[in-house]
Design a protein around this nucleic acid. Structure first.
Length: 152
DNA sequence: GCCAACGTTGGC
DNA sequence: GCCAACGTTGGC
């Protein structure tokens, strides 16, 4: 079992959208090779992930979800009407993958970025590193547990 | 809206 | 394969 943090701008797709879906949803639109490789090589069915709101007031962790199934090509890359369309990708040789995610829980408050910065033991957390911009990133088990402690 | 930091592209 | 120019992310 591994742990992840996945960012989304709530104006685009928030945890409320995922909660309302009532079924697994596709985590579409990631166009970064590191993230693509995480999807392909590192994530597994059943892994857990924090849902993180970026560009939000305030930004922070808002809930939990579960990775469902295996990686597969992101359909939006083939759709010319999608903002995620990639003309250099093809059905035979897809560039971009995604994962399905399933709602588990919405926290009763936002664990803000500032709050995370003040937690001893999270100083090495990828999310908190200067200039770090991955929209999907691994979370260490001890980091996960520290954050879960303050949620309870 | 600004801008730091990083990723990607493409000419050479 | 280098690297300048450009694009993107995301906090503020």
């Amino acid at each position: 079992m591994k742990y992840w943090l996945m960012k989304s701008e709530p104006d685009v797709y928030s945890i409320d959208h995922l909660m309302a879906a009532g079924k697994p949803a596709i985590w579409e639109g990631c166009r970064n090779y590191t993230v693509r490789n995480f999807f392909r090589d590192s994530m597994s069915n059943g892994d857990l992930a924090f849902f993180y709101h970026s560009n939000a007031q305030p930004s922070g962790i808002v809930g939990l979800m579960r990775i469902v199934g295996d990686a597969y090509p992101d359909p939006t890359q083939f759709d010319p009407s999608s903002e995620y369309f990639d003309e250099k990708s093809s059905l035979k040789n897809p560039r971009w993958l995604l994962r399905d995610v399933e709602f588990i829980q919405k926290f009763n408050r936002v664990i803000t970025l500032n709050e995370l910065r003040e937690i001893e033991g999270l100083s090495e957390m990828l999310l908190l590193r200067k200039g770090q911009r991955l929209s999907v990133m691994p979370v260490e088990e001890q980091e996960w547990n520290l954050i879960m402690e303050i949620v309870q």
